[in-house]
Design a protein around this nucleic acid. Structure first.
Length: 196
DNA sequence: GAGTCCCT
DNA sequence: TGGT
């Protein structure tokens, strides 16, 4: 894991936020549901890139189109493609940028990102808005976990053994950032999905 | 083939 | 932590 605290300055954060707003205007946030029993997530999602991560009763998967509009996902902004090269050094392009919107009371249980075929590619995470209490464990669910704060502008890279580690968000500290108009947090996770 | 759900 |  690499945590690059305050990697994005305020103007960079607002510029990125505007790009995300434009994407979400075309590909609206949807509410994913749990496989099998259909319980809704508290986090709402959208995506950009050739592939987008979705979840519904039939399971987790990557899709080329939005589950509600049926339209292809908007492209990943150039700034994020450049950032990927800059901070990951991974020689193959990312294919999916999952946009997670956390309202003040949203959380994300411990899980492993394992729907990608290219598990050698790192996952690049960008935080915008309110602080998140992030939790990182090991590759076994029973392993010890550590918790730390993710702040607006921070970049987290899940690589090496941590690529397969359990992680989640315990809570959002509402009102800790003024970047968004409302309390809440946007998290971007940029991934390579298929084998190069 | 289940799972980022919930809960303690 | 582990059943669902």
């Amino acid at each position: 894991m690499q945590l690059l605290s305050g990697y994005l300055n305020h103007p960079q954060q607002t510029a990125l936020l505007e790009e995300i707003r434009a994407i979400v205007a075309k590909a609206p946030l949807f509410t994913p549901t749990m496989p099998r029993w259909g319980k809704p997530f508290s986090v709402r999602m959208s995506n950009c890139g050739p592939l987008g991560w979705v979840s519904d009763k039939s399971g987790y998967r990557y899709e080329e189109t939005h589950p509600v509009t049926g339209e292809p996902w908007p492209a990943i902004p150039d700034s994020l493609m450049v950032l990927w090269d800059e901070v990951t050094g991974y020689s193959h392009s990312p294919q999916a940028c999952l946009i997670n919107y956390y309202s003040a009371d949203a959380k994300m249980g411990l899980h492993v990102d394992s729907d990608e075929k290219d598990m050698k590619a790192p996952i690049l995470s960008i935080s915008l808005g309110d602080d998140a209490r992030f939790r990182l464990g090991g590759t076994e669910r029973s392993a010890a976990t550590k918790s730390f704060l993710l702040r607006s502008g921070d970049i987290l890279i899940l690589d090496g053994a941590d690529r397969m580690a359990y992680h989640g968000v315990d809570r959002i500290d509402a009102g800790t950032s003024a970047l968004l108009r409302e309390p809440g947090r946007i998290n971007l996770t940029i991934r390579r999905v298929t084998l190069p």
